[in-house]
Amino acid sequence: MEQILANGIYLGSQYAMIALGLTLIFALMNVLNFAHGQMYVIGGFVTYTFYGQWGVPFVLALVMSCVTLAILGALIEKFLFAPVIKGSAREESTMLLAAGIAFFLDAVILLVFGEKQRGVPKIVDGVFNWDFRIIMPYDRILICVLAILSIVAFIGLMQYTKTGRALRALAQDRTAAQLMGVNVDRYSMIGFALGAMLAGLVGGLLVTITGVNLGMGGPTSIKAFMMVMIGGAGVISGAIWGGIILGFMEAIGLALLYQYGDITYLLIFVSLMIFLAIRPQGLMGKPWG
């Protein structure tokens, strides 16, 4: 039981970070970022290149992941999403753009990093063993702590800085924020960059444990969508709850039903559909997003 809880916290903290970036982008621009999983994969590959191949310290490699993704996110927002949102008759057209970008990033990853599964050397050796009730490698614990710290830092940023206040205002009401003198274009770009950066950060953190490969992008995006749905689209606290709930469901399901294989995911998906049918806006979302 303790083991399941520990696994749940570990998975949940990773998931929450992925969902945070996605929900931030959604809240600000009403864009479903299909390319989120690909951004996560790129983050993983950047850390792999710096830390695994060139021997740069791990923290520095993580920073490089964040910087790369932030720049990438800013460019994508400025030159692709912003003009398309302005020019299209129905704002759903951005979904086509997002999917196009997902394909494009997949192609770039394939050309630059290849299709092989890549892993890096362990950052810390050893396994934490509490009387055989909780067994967890130290590097997982470290990654989990780092993830929780980043989430706390992100919430701090959103709550207590000028940028965070502007972003929250933007998410609440775009027009009103503009009238209050918020530079909407600039903060949209910053928000998108921040969301992409979070994806890159998780990618960089997780490459030390699960490694990284080209095919991880799509499934990661789908999981992120699910977490966002559980918590409610565009709500920061919802994304965190969604991540934690999905993490625990997966940990519990895999522990109890491991002999049936994919049944866990089937059950999760079905219960999610039932949940959403009863409460369409998720745990804490606004109705009709």
Binding site: L32, F225, M229, A233, L266, L272, L276, A277, W288
Partner: peptide, 24 residues
């Protein structure tokens, strides 16, 4: 049940539906 949902909520639940059918 699900047609009561709108916007991205409907989009995402249909996305999940594809997964459900594949897994089923």
């Amino acid at each position: 049940p699900i047609l009561r949902l709108r916007g991205v909520y409907f989009a995402m639940i249909t996305l999940v539906l594809t997964q459900v059918v594949t897994l089923t």
